[in-house]
Write a protein that binds this DNA or RNA. Structure first.
Lengths: 234, 234
DNA sequence: GCACCGCCTTGATCGAGATCAAGGCTTTGT
DNA sequence: ACAAAGCCTTGATCTCGATCAAGGCGGTGC
């Protein structure tokens, strides 16, 4: 993924030894000697929120921040098909064209590998294919979970499921958790197949029912995870 | 996947040399010498339509027939999250539990490998991981296409998309194609997030509009692929 | 051939969520 | 501090697809 519109890229070549995504990330697969120099071909990017990422065949590790993936219909209707958090991978190997758009929701740090490099690495490093296979299967499970939600859940079940499952990797505590939503209401709607109005209404209902607390627009705390789970439908 | 309910299994151990799924299938990855004997561990199953397949960790090639994958909500609502045709793979490596149910829609022939075997093969055969990675990525693209359809398309767009994209691997001709639907109306509904009534109504509308012809319940021919594409929304 | 049963079609009505619109709250820039 | 723009909430109304229900068709078994 490359930067598409406005956004200066601090193009810092990085040796993977120092890469934060080493654990669980692409670089984590690069243990063998022949790859040390390949790893030098990686580069670091800082990308501001809102930037659209062009698919140039490169493959990246997300080091920090949140990215949304969307599919668009011809008349502009939009569906978010997934989110990426650290240390996820971004990109679609084995394919030149990809009908999916990636956009940074927050400031994002990426560790990128060019198409050429990543393809050579894929050939030479079985461990890399293994990591990528596990990652793809995890994303497939996710996608299918949300297919069931999109096709069969009510608006309130969708919102409850979103709050429980799409928080990103983080802060789970006993029976109360609190976090900053990385998305605005329009994104919640585009992810759940709803309109902004319905998404907002359902959040309000959860608030008046005492299931969640909405501190400010972006900050939510779950007052009762158990009661939220009851409302998920699955 | 193993057979779950009623269904005699003709358990014929097969050497992969004779496996129809060799091309593009699991066996196609097994070229190296050390795997010839592993391949002997594969077995062939004949499964009648309607059978539910239990997830026992085995991994199978579909040699013929159609399988549906479903996710279920607690109150019985159901969503079909994918179909498998030959030479697809069936199963979920790297995971003991899988919240997805597989059921044969037609008579199905499988070439199965036990969990132990498939894990050993996965370790020893980079080519296998490569095949599985490509397969997983293809399924992920599919799942995301249908996420957008489920979340944002109208009933008639969903049905049009289904006719064009879920025919299974087959008979594309110039501007007219004809085929047997492997599914009943209830499955179309469960796949598209609709009710049987709506699915049937939309098919009727396409018929009266002259876009398709419904010979009998299971046999449909597309009179105008172009006009069907216009109605897909993407 | 005839009866039965499962699947499909079609109609009438209802309701969840979309649409349209007004106003309030936050953030940002000057 | 003030103004302006963006985002969010909430209300009123409408619509698409769900629900409920009544037949029709086609395959299967006797």
């Amino acid at each position: 993924m490359a930067i598409k519109q406005g956004a200066q890229q601090a193009d810092i070549p990085t040796i993977c030894e120092s890469c934060e995504a080493r654990q669980g990330g692409l670089c984590g697969a690069l243990e063998t000697g022949q790859l040390v120099n390949l790893a030098k071909a990686s580069s670091r990017h800082e990308i501001p929120g809102g930037t659209e990422l062009a698919d140039d065949g490169a493959y990246s590790n997300v080091l920090s921040g949140v990215i949304k993936l969307t599919r668009n219909l011809s008349d502009g209707r939009q569906q978010i098909v997934g989110f990426h958090f650290a240390p996820d991978f971004l990109g679609r190997p084995f394919k030149a064209q990809w009908p999916i758009t990636a956009r940074a929701l927050t400031k994002v740090t990426l560790c990128s590998f060019s198409k050429t490099i990543i393809e050579r690495m894929m050939e030479e490093t079985p461990a890399l294919r293994r990591v990528l296979l596990k990652h793809a299967l995890k994303q497939l499970d996710e996608a299918r979970y949300w297919m069931a939600a999109l096709g069969r859940k009510t608006a309130s079940e969708k919102v409850a499921s979103f709050l429980l499952r799409n928080i990103g990797p983080g802060n789970h505590s006993a029976n109360s958790m609190s976090f900053d939503l990385p998305v605005k209401r329009a994104d919640i709607a585009d992810f759940l197949g709803l309109t902004i109005g319905t998404a907002s209404r359902e959040l309000s209902k959860l608030r008046t029912d005492g299931v969640i607390r909405i501190a400010n627009r972006r900050h939510i705390s779950l007052e009762s995870v158990a009661r939220l789970e009851e409302r998920c439908g699955d």
